[in-house]
């Protein structure tokens, strides 16, 4: 019932994926000054994965590895300042000028946010993977 085999649905999801991911990326970078951020971006990307899952487009990402990577990034950003003689989680801000974009400012908080996104995406995939009837066959006589 859940997993559609409709080619229209599949095509639609395929078409929707790039703009949805764009929205996710936008939210990620917008988070600095406007609503958005790593958590929201992670949810959007996770939702894209879920949507693709429903029409049979599987991802090969292993959720536990993605979350592990996220934790390593987050913990790394947290501990890195200690190596430079600062306190845990101290933030570094770099700014530079790029040819097209003009003045660009980046903080270590952005890297921290990448880790948060990775964990959220991993979580969503883990939940979807766990609940999806496509992989876990439903009890006999109850699925429709």
């Amino acid at each position: 019932m859940i997993r559609s085999t409709s080619p229209v649905a599949e095509l639609g999801v395929r078409a929707a994926t790039p703009p949805a991911l764009m929205v996710g990326m936008f939210l990620f970078f917008a988070g600095h000054n406007r609503p958005g951020g790593g958590f929201a971006a992670g949810l959007i990307i996770g939702a894209v994965v879920a949507l693709r899952w429903m029409v049979g487009l599987r991802t090969t990402v292993v959720p536990s590895q993605l979350m592990a990577a996220g934790i390593v990034i987050v913990a790394g950003v947290a501990l890195a300042p200690v190596l430079f003689g600062s306190v845990v989680l101290d933030q570094a801000v770099w700014s530079t000028s790029l040819p097209v974009l003009g003045k660009v400012k980046a903080g270590s908080a952005a890297i921290f946010d990448i880790g948060v996104s990775a964990i959220v995406v991993g979580l969503v995939i883990a939940v979807i993977d766990g609940l999806s009837p496509a992989t876990t066959s439903a009890p006999e006589g109850q699925s429709s």
Binding site: I2, A50, M54, I128, L131, S132, P133, A138, Q142, S143
Partner: peptide
């Protein structure tokens, strides 16, 4: 989405 997937069971 999670609900809908879970309801399949």
């Amino acid at each position: 989405v999670g609900f809908v997937l879970g309801l399949g069971h």
